[in-house]
Nucleic acid binder design. Structure first.
Length: 522
RNA sequence: GGGCCCAUAGCUCAGCCGGUAGAGCAGCGGCCUUUUAAGCCGUUGGUCGCGAGUUCGAAUCUCGCUGGGCUCACCA
């Protein structure tokens, strides 16, 4: 079998093919020379005294004379990202996690071996520099090197210095190279971390408890999605990778943790797109004695504060739109949306035959309508009307939801874990937050009536039997948990990747995931 | 899965009305002790994604395959 063959040599030892071979060979020769010079290969005895940012801070605002008098010594380490060489001196730009600083290595200041090391340096090498701070003719704070060492030789050359690495596939496959050469990429992932830190602090400050629940589930639930399957050998047990943590988090609310949240991965075995990665990061949080209305207020506050924190303002640019988190978010019920953008009358929302006319007129395909109705054989005409109305909603209403919008009051029939509206049991107390026509969050007042939950699970099982691959399974233990008493609770899930996309302007989810799933390299 | 587009040096890209491959950066050699996209002179480097076909001759035209991008479908 071809699949069992080892990958080509070049895949295991990058660079050992074609002309690249020559570049790698040259660098390995230099590495050997350095080894001879230092008597060590991959030395690890260099000790930095500070980060680059600390060195920059130490010289901040001090002129050349002051620096000369103070003779501030620093030892920094990092990657060489640029070299300006002269015959008997060189400027090298060194970057660590905190920043970039320039070092100046001058032949009549350092010993012969040190100067030799300089000549054996390539862009991309990891070096250590010890020296004193001074200012160059152009007033740039620079380290006058007394000690200069190559700590790790880069055997493979880096991409070109001002175009960087452009090819998106290469950037995803070799994220390490992308991060070395593309500042925008580093900025995106710093922002990602900051988003997660902000969300965490926001909830911590409001007495939410961060918890971890299983990612391997024996029963499928918490969302409508197709799962990944796996197997535990010792227990001889089939398991799903979780599609949502929801049911476990609500068990914790039953247990008395009134406010909980979890930030981690969900896995859904569905198509890939610029908005979907098979594993994605979601925050789910639950608050007892609250309703979905409370969560709308909380979510507005969160998004506004997040924008201010990571962008310094309430707006962000996305797909040519300026999204503003400053004003109160629009609130639009599903039924009102259908009336406003899709020509629905009130009567169309109660009769499946009338609804079907409007849905088809909206451009939904008959096949799609039939597919949806097939899974709802026993539902009422109202439920069916609402269910197929959602198809028209996706097609005709979502494109209008550019500014942050809470879409509210979803059909109960597609919301098996949500609390029914007191005023209309065919609808539920639920909202989804749309921004730039994308669903970013999903929240609802939780269904805490165990008998109703039983019926909803039964409906899911019926749909599954009818061929709905995304229907939930009946979770008996979850229903049992409800019989011990779940307080009135509201819960929400926010897609972190999509929030990061919004905050960074990235239009592809793969650009905000460090290592997105890719096909194996040919 | 459908449609459209892309794949040429380590990187960024030209070349594509068929005549056997080019630039910049990187590299190598030389000059240069305050440069910062440093500069000047010289120079190495390519199975033009893979496989067939058409042709005297294919990076270029045709078909297939692989990988990728956009888009539609599926999907939160």
């Amino acid at each position: 079998m071809d699949q069992l063959d080892f990958p080509p040599f070049s895949k295991r030892i990058p660079g050992m093919e074609g002309a690249e071979n020559e570049l790698v060979r040259q660098r390995r020769d230099k590495q050997a020379s350095l080894e001879q010079l230092d008597g060590a290969r991959y030395p690890n005895d260099f000790r930095m005294s500070c980060f680059v940012s600390d060195a920059l801070a130490a010289g901040e605002g001090k002129d050349g004379t002051t620096l000369g008098a103070e003779a501030i010594e620093v030892a920094i380490a990092g990657r060489v990202i640029a070299v300006n060489g002269f015959g008997k001196a060189s400027f090298i730009r060194v970057r660590d996690q905190s920043g970039t600083i320039q070092a100046y290595v001058k032949k009549d200041v350092v010993d012969e071996a040190t100067f030799e090391r300089l000549k054996l340096t390539d862009i991309g090498d990891i070096v250590g520099v010890r020296g004193t701070l001074f200012r160059t003719r152009t007033d740039e704070l620079t380290i006058q090197a007394h000690e200069y060492r190559v700590l790790t030789k880069a055997q493979h050359p880096l991409p070109e210095k001002w175009h960087g690495l452009k090819d998106m596939e290469q950037r995803h496959r070799m994220r390490y190279v992308d991060l070395i050469v593309n500042e925008e990429s580093r900025a995106v992932f710093r922002t990602r971390t900051r988003v997660i830190q902000y969300v965490r602090k926001f909830l911590d400050d409001r007495a939410y408890l961060e918890v971890e629940t299983p990612m391997m589930h024996p029963i499928l639930g918490g969302a409508n999605a197709r799962p990944f399957r796996t197997h535990h050998n010792a227990l001889d047990m089939d398991l799903y990778l979780r599609i949502a943590p929801e049911l476990y988090l609500k068990r914790l609310v039953v247990g008395g943790f009134d406010r909980v949240y979890e930030i981690n991965r969900n896995f859904r075995n569905e198509g890939l797109s610029n908005r979907h990665n098979p594993e994605f990061t979601m925050i789910e949080f639950y608050q007892a004695y609250a309703t979905y209305l409370d969560l709308m207020d909380l979510t507005e506050e969160l998004m506004r504060g997040l924008a201010m924190d990571v962008r310094g303002k309430t707006t962000t640019e996305f797909r040519g739109h300026t999204i503003d988190f400053g004003p109160s978010f629009r609130r639009l019920s599903v039924c009102d949306g259908l009336k406003e953008y899709c020509g629905f009358e009130e009567a169309d929302l109660h009769d499946v035959a009338l609804a079907e006319v409007k849905v088809l007129a909206a451009g939904v395909s008959p096949a799609e309508v039939n597919h949806t109705l097939k899974n709802l054989a026993d539902a009422s005409s109202r439920d069916k009307a609402l269910a197929i109305g959602m198809l028209a909603f996706e097609l005709k209403v979502e494109p209008h939801l550019v500014q942050p919008t809470f879409v509210t009051d979803f059909p109960a029939v597609i919301s098996p874990l949500s609390r029914r509206k007191d005023s209309d049991p065919t609808l539920v107390d639920r909202f989804e937050m749309y921004i730039a026509c994308n669903e970013i969050a999903n929240a609802f007042s939780e269904l805490n009536d165990p008998q109703d939950q039983e019926q909803r699970f039964q409906a899911q099982m019926a749909a599954k039997a009818a061929g709905d691959a995304e229907a939930m399974e009946y979770d008996e233990d979850y229903v049992r948990a409800l019989t011990f008493g779940l307080p009135p609770t509201a819960g929400e899930g926010i897609g972190i990747d999509r929030v990061v996309m919004l905050m960074t302007g990235c239009e592809n989810i793969r650009d905000v995931i460090l290592f997105p799933l890719l096909r194996p390299e040919g």
